[in-house]
Design a binder for these strands. Structure first.
Lengths: 248, 248
DNA sequence: AAGTGGTCTAGACCACCAT
DNA sequence: TGGTGGTCTAGACCACTTA
């Protein structure tokens, strides 16, 4: 594109970074929906007036970030939130012997609330903005194992109701993606050990004061924009949190 | 290299993977020591009879794995275990407000033992092989915060003594690297919540039964070969474990 | 000024998938 | 058979470091 696309951009970046930004923009604007195929690399090269090598460099990074998926001979696709992706990329609790079990969530409460300063900061909202608070009990192999609370901006999920959330057919992130066009692409997690309070202990079937793993997650969409806060309490008597999935 | 280097290799892999393997082999054999510069990409291309593009592809991956470090205009270097690398890549405990504090370890015990079946499996040893067990109390900002136990194969660290370990000048991984030529390049960690036992509680200055974060780490060198097991007990009253460093 | 890594190009050939 | 991604090449030019 030789400066054509760069015109008007103050700060110059490598071409492949610009191309990556343009592709991401297309994803944000819904030009390519989840599961859809992108144009072939040849066509993308024509469209952005760069060589195929530059396209490949940009797509390489989006594939590394698990935003796109390449399939040789078929094409390049927008990653979808199927159960497999959830398990491998966003769910890190594993049985002691290494077996991954599919989480089975049950909604306990669905409330409307307002963001305090901490929530506002972490969700990029103003203090006092409306949020949903949703509590779930998650079972593994039928046993209650995780208690979590989600916080979402009402502005971002305008018509979300308790019924929609409870009766969804797929994972929570698939709901965000299909109904609201919000594609969660990354999650940052912070962990600590804590003691079970009476209410949590009862739900998780442990004694009050028992050690639980507390996980604070911020789930993000493109450009690291936060869209969901989640606090999980995990009974790690027979399970562990695996910190390094995926690498080599 | 057009099949020249591939001759004798049964299972064909892309050239850049072969080149990556050859460079890694050079690192294992000590051809390039920690901190040293590799030959320039032009020279590597000549040496392995491939184009510069293929060299770059191989080096790209080693850089992504933090095994090599590129510096434009200067060259490509073997990553060293300086305090900064430790903090950013291998030490995930951070103060609640996000400030990273440099860990200050104090050796408590240095013992010789034999591997039980679990240790043997995780360290790729035979049950009964000799190991070191080293316990440390780690302070953050002067306060006791982490209790850890390392398990190392005596065969891998032949002349290691209590004195050498205690009087080392740099980090543990720098010691492995400079004295034994073992470069720790990756660590896998599994976490759980546990209750403080009497002895640990006393050392960490918490009450018995207080929740502690238990971290099981396997530190690995090239080809995911395990070289160190480490179990840490962390007081997370004012600290957290950050799970996703480094990404975007 | 010389040498290094960083970007970008254009094109060849291969492996795989759909039809 | 035609289209897709995957690999590999050769070379140009740029940005940065060192001397």
């Amino acid at each position: 594109m030789n400066d054509a696309l760069r015109a008007g951009v103050e700060t110059f970046a490598p071409l492949y970074i610009e191309v990556k930004r343009l592709i991401t923009q297309g994803l944000i604007e819904g030009e390519w929906q989840a599961g859809a195929a992108l144009p072939s690399e040849t066509r993308l090269a024509q469209r952005y007036h760069v060589s195929i090598g530059t396209i490949r460099r940009a797509v390489d990074e989006l594939v590394a970030e698990q935003i796109l998926v390449r399939q040789q001979g078929r094409g390049t696709f927008v990653a979808t939130h199927d159960p497999k992706r959830l398990l491998f990329h966003f769910f890190h609790v594993v049985r002691n012997d290494g077996v991954k079990e599919m989480p089975e969530p049950e909604m306990l409460a669905f409330e409307r609330d307002r963001a305090d300063t901490a929530v506002a900061r972490r969700l990029n909202l103003l203090p006092g903005e409306r949020v949903f608070r949703i509590r779930n009990l998650v079972r593994l192999a039928g046993e209650p194992m995780i208690l979590d609370e989600l916080v979402l901006s009402q502005a971002r999920f305008p018509d979300l109701t308790e019924k929609i959330f409870r009766e969804r057919e797929a994972t929570v992130y698939a709901l965000y993606q299909t109904r609201y066009g919000i594609n969660v692409v990354r999650a940052a997690e912070r962990l600590r050990a804590t003691a079970a309070e009476r209410a949590s202990a009862k739900l998780l079937n442990v004694r009050p004061g028992a050690p639980l793993l507390e996980i604070h997650r911020t789930a993000m969409t493109y450009h690291n924009t936060p869209v969901e806060l989640r606090t999980s309490l995990v009974n790690t008597a027979a399970h562990e949190y695996w910190s390094d999935f995926g690498k080599a």
